[in-house]
Design a protein around this nucleic acid. Structure first.
Lengths: 127, 127
DNA sequence: ATCGCTGCAAAACATTTGCAGTTTG
DNA sequence: CAAACTGCAAATGTTTTGCAGCGAT
């Protein structure tokens, strides 16, 4: 719960390993699933090869870079999203959460791309 | 492009196979990726074991059942989402798309669950 | 002759599962 | 002791990749 950002099970594993060196990745997966089912964690964002989670606390949305897959919290100040009307039921469907992802290209990846166009020789560091 | 709904590469493979029996799953994956990069297709929804795509045409949002993973288009009439203000840039990030998923439990899964509570013997058919 | 597309098989990941042994209450 | 939790290794499922051959230009 104390990890910053939107960690994958692998990232959680690496962090927990520092405190409990004997822990296994399978145990992390099992517990992450338990916490998702219990609602302690929620899953974040598509466009990933691996699951990303965050504590299931205040509602907020995410910026997701479709190039490097980095996820950033969307600053509520700059929010382009009007508050979503909350209906409990839609099309016979019981609504539990609304997930909003703003997809696009982060500054680093944009820089990398334009530098690729102009000077394909040198590589900028990854996002 | 003519497939209904939000098919996975596997589902596309099964469909294309009827017209081109010799096609391989790898070829479908390669072409789906090409179409995603070109913008002909877009990726849909998290909460899946497999990628789901749809033609990258009119903006609309999705209902996603977190139990059975079924994806349904959200009827714009019943839309609980106010139109999203469009900003091109946010936090140094070039916005290309806003993805909204309404997550919850579909009618069939809800029925299945309550029947499980009251009469655990009989199984309703899958969503 | 070249370039792009294909199928196949293998590889690379991400995630889950079975099981036997430990820990907890 | 019973129930829950763990590590390990194997199984699963999805997606990517290398490569050799084929086809079209």
């Amino acid at each position: 719960m104390s990890l910053e950002g939107h960690p994958s099970p692998e990232m959680i594993y690496e962090a927990v390993r520092k405190k409990i060196p004997s822990i296994s990745l399978a145990t992390v997966y099992k517990n992450v699933r338990t916490f998702l089912v219990s609602g302690m964690l929620r899953e974040v964002s598509m466009h990933h090869g691996s699951m990303r989670v965050e504590p299931n606390e205040s509602e907020h949305y995410h910026l997701v870079c479709t190039r490097c897959r980095q996820i950033t919290d969307l600053d509520p100040e700059s929010v382009p999203v009007q508050p979503l009307a909350k209906k409990r039921f839609l099309q016979g469907f019981h609504v539990t959460r609304i997930s909003v992802d703003v997809l696009g290209v982060c500054a680093l990846c944009a820089a990398k791309e334009s530098s690729m166009t102009t000077k394909p020789r040198r590589r900028k560091k990854e996002c």
